[in-house]
Simulated scan of single mutants.
Amino acid sequence: MENAKTITIADVMTKSVISADASMTINETAKMMEDAKVGAVIIMENNTPIGIVTDRDFAVKAAAHAYEISSPIKRIMSSPLLSINSDESVRNAADLMHERGVRKLPVLSDDKVVGMITATDIVNLLAVCVEEDMRNMYFHSVAKIFTNYSPYN
């Protein structure tokens, strides 16, 4: 394996990304996510990515505010879309996730969605790293991502 400091997002991202049109409803989008077995979809308007909806948005935003399932998906999406370029390092992705408190980042290239990197992708990367790389990544990146989610803080 190459040095963990130089592994790019393109090396570990999920390339298959589901998108939904901004005109879809909360219910239609939830069904799409269930059928595709994904935890996030990119919301598109005029072939441009404008936001993201995660499974957590359904629980926190839709349920907490008792939005009708026929409401537009735009009502619960996170926008503006926070993203990262595919040629950036995994360390940069982990830092951005930590700073913004997110666990999923759309990956863009020339303003087109080309993938998604998640906290899980970064953890999976640890499983195939040599011990030195794993230690380096853990202390620099992964610990930052999960700090906010630890029950011990």
Rank of each mutant, 00 (worst) to 15 (best):
D57L: 02
A93N: 05
S79R: 05
K74G: 06
L126S: 02
L126C: 00
N92M: 09
I42G: 10
I73T: 05
M1F: 15
A94N: 01
K144E: 02
I122T: 02
E2L: 07
M32L: 15
K104S: 09
M24H: 05
A66R: 08
A93G: 05
R103P: 06
I7F: 03
G39P: 09
L81F: 06
T48S: 15
C129R: 03
P49Q: 02
V107G: 10
E132H: 12
D133A: 15
R135E: 14
S89P: 00
E99F: 12
D121G: 07
R100M: 08
E45M: 14
E68I: 15
I18K: 10
T6E: 04
I50C: 10
N85T: 10
L125M: 05
C129Y: 01
L96A: 01
M44R: 07
T54A: 00
N148M: 15
Y149D: 03
S150E: 02
R103V: 07
V113T: 03
A40D: 09
M44E: 08
S83T: 12
T147F: 15
S71A: 14
N92S: 11
K37Y: 11
N148Q: 13
A10W: 00
S79H: 05
A59M: 15
P72T: 13
E99K: 14
V107S: 11
Y67L: 03
M24F: 04
M33I: 03
M33A: 00
V114S: 04
N153M: 14
I7S: 00
D35F: 10
A64E: 05
T118N: 11
R56Q: 06
A30Y: 06
D133N: 14
E88C: 11
V107R: 12
H65W: 06
V41I: 09
A59V: 14
S86I: 15
I7R: 01
V113I: 02
S23G: 09
H65I: 04
R135D: 14
A143W: 13
N47G: 11
L96E: 03
L96D: 01
K15Y: 02
N3D: 09
E34K: 12
P106T: 03
A64T: 06
I122H: 01
I145T: 01
R75I: 08
N27P: 06
M32C: 12
T120Q: 13
T14G: 10
A119V: 07
R91W: 13
F139N: 11
I76S: 05
A63S: 15
R100C: 07
I26H: 05
S71R: 13
M44F: 07
F146A: 04
V60Q: 01
S16L: 13
D55Y: 12
I43T: 07
V107N: 10
A63T: 14
N92Q: 08
L82K: 06
V38Y: 10
N148D: 15
M33F: 03
K15C: 04
F139E: 11
D111G: 04
C129W: 00
P106D: 02
V114I: 09
L126P: 01
I18Q: 09
I18M: 09
A30E: 07
P80D: 12
A4Q: 09
M77K: 02
I69W: 15
R56A: 07
A36Y: 06
M134C: 12
I73M: 05
A127W: 12
V90I: 14
M13N: 02
H140A: 11
V113W: 00
S23I: 08
S19L: 08
S141I: 11
E45G: 13
I7T: 04
D11G: 05
A64L: 07
P80V: 13
